[in-house]
Amino acid sequence: MNNDKLIIGGHEFNSRFILGSGKYSMKLIEAAVKDAGAEIITLAVRRANTKEQESILDYIPDGITLLPNTSGARNAEEAVRIARLARELGCGDFVKIEIMRDSKYLLPDNQETIKATEILANEGFAVMPYMYPDLNVARDLVNAGAASVMPLASPIGSNKGLATKEFIQILIDEIDLPIIVDAGIGRPSQACEAMEMGAAAIMANTALATAGDLPMMASAFKNAIEAGRNAYLAGLGRVLTRGASASDPLTGFLRD
């Protein structure tokens, strides 16, 4: 399994669990990262506060790749500004593009996301766009220079699971970039299912932040993601359309 690397924008990772850092205490980040086995953690960019001297960066273990998002952006231009500010904050070249113009469902604006992806990829960013799973859009993101594609499973923060399963499967089958399922995954079993389908990685935040025991849930997700990955690599057994197939020999019964 040591050769099974996740490669994003030329960078290699062993973990396939991307951890969010929102909506929970900074003091839990170290335990969450450790128990998740995570190598990538997402961050947001906001107006700096002069009152709080604590920085979230002080709580993130060394060697973890920072993945700033562009949350708060309502169009490509704002996303590009946030990405540039994030790079200036000294976190490397990764960026997760998140563009929303609707505050009720928080659905990503695919068209603006394609525009921002193209601009930032040309500036040397490893661009990881969050998107509504649409094959045509995913192809445009590939052409725009994306390093991965991050389709939503269900609305952000909903913990509702793989509502878009069929369409994520199409992206996995047709797009030659890592498909990272982002948003809406609420249970380890859902993460496992997405990995069995061939997803390259899972991003989760709310599922952990709203769990009873955050580090323990991080560990549960880690195990589920590894199980799903191994199942995918092993190749799932076939499903019968109808009838049954005995697992036991059909000869040698204790009767004549």
Partner: peptide
């Protein structure tokens, strides 16, 4: 950062000062 010392704030400028916070 290297330009902080030479960049003059002018009337009407709009400045944003940002940092990282927790997020998904």
């Amino acid at each position: 950062k290297s330009q902080y010392g030479e960049t003059l704030l002018q009337d009407g400028d709009s400045i944003e000062i940002v940092s990282f916070v927790g997020g998904g």
